[in-house]
């Protein structure tokens, strides 16, 4: 238990130490590359902004991710259960996923002009639903027929088979995808906050640091984003333990 917490903390300290060393050894000034020791003052100076903007980024990311879970699961169910839907939707989904989302920022800001919260949530959703849809779809379509047959032979309905077998069996894949999606959703949120600045979120704080040449602030924002990403990731792990802990085999 101790090593489970201590190991990552030591790794982070070593990382920060190497970073500090790199900046110090090269004699880089602040405007080229900030060092870890520059960060605490930056955080302290803008502490209220960090809390406010951090919260805006976090809630919009979580809402986008939540939408991605719902829509991704529904799409996954459609392509998982219907061959025709799979053949029809896969090329569209892959094509959509291949579009760099930065190029969509001007499109959605023009479509929903001024709806900053909506736009940001929408982007977080668009960038993160794909892994969920694909993994749920694969999980359902690769369900061994025998698993279905044990209930089907008893005359169970399709809905019963889904709830009792298909859904729980897909959960480990679902959570695997959710971990990827959680970090992707942050990228989506920040994309809108940076590319289409509207004074909200950590992305906007980053942008203002850039405008003012405040490099420690920019790096502090990056660290804050990394921190939020880690928090959300572990929240997903926590849910996974509860709902799919059975898939975790003890090491032998």
């Amino acid at each position: 238990m101790f090593s489970k917490i201590a190991t990552p903390i030591i790794a982070i300290i070593v990382f920060l130490g190497l970073w500090e060393l790199l900046v110090w050894a090269n004699g880089w000034p602040n405007f080229k590359m900030a060092s870890p020791s520059d960060l605490p003052p930056a955080f302290w100076k803008y502490r209220e902004l960090f809390l406010e903007m951090g919260w805006q980024t976090l809630w919009r990311t979580v809402v986008g991710l939540f939408l991605a879970v719902i829509v991704g699961t529904v799409i996954g169910m459609i392509i998982g259960f219907s061959r025709i839907a799979r053949d029809a939707l896969y090329p569209l989904l892959i094509g959509f996923n291949a579009i760099p989302k930065a190029t969509l920022v001007p499109v959605i800001s023009l479509l929903f002009i001024g709806q900053h919260d909506f736009n940001t949530v929408l982007m977080a959703f668009m960038i993160s639903f794909f892994p969920i849809a694909v993994s749920v779809g694969i999980g359902l379509s690769t369900l061994e027929p025998e698993y279905r047959d044990i209930l089907r032979a008893l005359g169970a309905s399709k809905a019963t088979i889904f709830w009792k077998i298909a859904l729980p069996k897909t959960l480990p894949e679902f959570f695997g995808a959710l971990k990827v999606s959680a970090t992707l959703a942050f990228i989506g949120t920040n994309l809108v906050e940076i590319v289409s600045p509207h004074g909200r979120g950590l992305g906007a704080l980053f942008k203002s640091g850039e405008t003012n040449g405040d490099y420690p602030l920019m790096f502090a924002v990056l660290i804050a984003l990394a921190f939020l990403g880690i928090v959300l990731y572990y929240a997903v792990i926590f849910l996974e333990r509860i709902f799919a802990g059975w898939a975790d085999r003890e090491a032998t």
Binding site: D149, L171, A244
Partner: peptide, 12 residues
Amino acid sequence: GMAFQNPVLLEW
């Protein structure tokens, strides 16, 4: 009642 070569038990 049905039984298969694979026990198909539900892991959860």
